[in-house]
Amino acid sequence: MKRLVGCLMKSMLSASLGFCMLGAALAQEAVERRTLEPLQSPAQSAPLQQPAASEDNAATAQPMPKSAEEAEHGEPSGLAEAADDGDSANVIDLSEPRKPLRIGLVAERGTIYLQARIEPFRSYLQETLSRPVEVIAFNTMRSLMAAHIGHQIDYSVYPAGVFAMAYASCGCLTPIVAPVSKEAPDGTYMLLVVRGESGIKSLSDMAGRTMALSSKNGAVPYFMALNELKKAGLNPDRDLSSLVARSDPAEALTLLRDGVVDAALVWSSTRYNQFLFSRRGAVASFVEQDGKGASDGARLDFVSIWHSPAIPAGPHAIHNDLPKQEKADLVTALKEMNKRDPEAYDAIERYHSGGFRSVDLSDYAPLIEIATTK
């Protein structure tokens, strides 16, 4: 009898242990299933909501559609590759998915065109930074500036003068890189150009003379140049007999060529007179146009008597709230882009072929000074 009771107790103990083990296994499976469930959906944040519309632009920003690969598979390509790895399905990643880097760009030719053109750039950053990257399309530069200042986007690309105005309005943006022209690695200059036969050799000789500006729109670089002229000793408002504005450099240089004015303030990629006619700039373009119709093939007699500080190309800028390490990683990725992925570089930079170099606020200080006082 005792032997029978002992056998029954052993059987019940074994059954209880089996049920416990089975229950533990089922519980563990349930835990794993709940843990893995988020990993079965895209490890990518939801698209950035459209920023609040500005007064002049009711619907200004649109999240860029995903790439074809992401649309088809529902996840970034990096995650798709990881899922195909033999043992990765057994790995539980408890880390939070990284927030997307939000890049704002003006869609001058429409969102669809911007998406197609910018995709190599977006894909390069997403792969290099190992984080989702979203491109937000804006209809106007004004609405993009408002979104960046409000930190609805992290990163954008500006013309130099526009960046100065954006920074002056909040002090919350930082330039990180700018494209480099192989022809003008330091940037562009504003030149004060005169006729060689005029006898004007320096700014002091401009007293009582006339000057033509090559912009009617009050562009920041021209205000900067006038401010720098004041620092150099020539106050256009006080020292010149007249100051006229024209729509473009060709009109200003036409007045100079015809003797209507004594000087013209124009831009150039060089500050040296020996390259004035051959390097990219207003004078070189005018020579090419004027040469086709100049009587007797007369050579233009232009010389520069003053140049502004170099103005770097428009910067890639981030909001100051972007963490320092993310900023450092982004700068590294951008500076290596032209060598590592020329297609990605060409997608974002269409005019300067020399890659990116680091810049900071001091590079745009003359422009910021003007934008701050305006």
Rank of each mutant, 00 (worst) to 15 (best):
R3K: 03
S11L: 13
G18C: 10
C20Y: 03
G23R: 09
E37S: 13
L48H: 07
Q49N: 08
D56R: 13
A61L: 03
P63H: 07
M64L: 14
A71H: 08
H73W: 11
G78P: 05
E81S: 14
A83F: 05
D84L: 14
I92K: 10
P100R: 12
T128S: 15
R131C: 13
I136M: 13
T140E: 13
A146F: 02
A146M: 09
S156C: 09
V157G: 05
P159F: 07
G161T: 04
V162A: 14
Y167E: 07
I176Y: 03
K182W: 10
Y189K: 05
L192N: 06
R195Y: 01
T210Q: 04
N227G: 11
L229R: 02
G233Q: 06
L234M: 06
L240Y: 11
D248A: 14
E251L: 10
L256K: 01
R257T: 01
R257V: 03
A263N: 00
W267M: 12
T270Y: 07
R271T: 07
A284N: 00
A284K: 07
E288G: 08
E288A: 15
G297L: 13
F302D: 04
P309I: 03
N320S: 06
M337W: 06
G355F: 02
R357M: 04
S358T: 14
V359M: 09
D363F: 12
A365K: 13
